[in-house]
Amino acid sequence: MSKNKLFFIEAIFLCTLMGCSQAEEGTFMQGDITGINKESGDMEVDVDAWTTVSEKGSSTEPYEIDDAPTSQTIRVSNPEDYEEGEKVQVKVIKNYEEDVWDLDRLTFEVEEVD
């Protein structure tokens, strides 16, 4: 397993252990799109911040992850909807029961931010 994948998995695991109150629970990254492969759907994001939010009411502020990757490649189903240079917030979604973080099975919801 590559060092980048291992670090990402560790960061996501730490995110799930800590959390705060926000409109929506989950693990998020914010940053700028630096590259898009329109054929494969791979999108490279230069990450400004990683945050996680768990059970509502547990805290008033999202927990920011220190030492998380500063760049992450994600796969999206609609790469034609995005442009390089756009600022985005990405929610990491785990749609399976096992207690492992598998980058090949994670999905991502991408929203443009101002």
Rank of each mutant, 00 (worst) to 15 (best):
G35M: 05
N37L: 08
V45Y: 06
F28V: 04
D81A: 15
T34C: 01
M43Y: 01
N4T: 13
N37P: 09
E112W: 00
K91I: 04
E55S: 11
D46R: 10
V88L: 03
K3R: 14
E64N: 03
I33M: 02
E25Y: 01
L106S: 05
S71N: 00
M29F: 10
S59P: 04
D66K: 15
V90I: 15
F7Y: 01
V100N: 06
K3E: 14
Y96A: 02
M43W: 03
K91M: 07
M1C: 00
A23L: 13
M43E: 02
G26R: 05
E112M: 08
Q72P: 00
P79K: 08
F28R: 08
M1F: 05
D48C: 01
Q89V: 11
L17W: 12
V76F: 11
C15M: 12
E24K: 11
L103Y: 12
S54N: 15
R75S: 09
L106F: 07
N78E: 12
T16A: 03
T107E: 12
D32S: 10
W101C: 01
S21P: 04
E24Y: 09
K3D: 14
Y63P: 00
W50N: 05
E84M: 04
D81L: 14
G41K: 11
G41D: 09
L103P: 12
Q30R: 14
G57K: 11
N37G: 02
F8W: 08
D81R: 10
E98I: 03
N95I: 00
D104E: 15
Q22R: 13
M43N: 03
F28D: 02
C15E: 04
G85K: 03
Q22S: 15
K5N: 13
D81C: 06
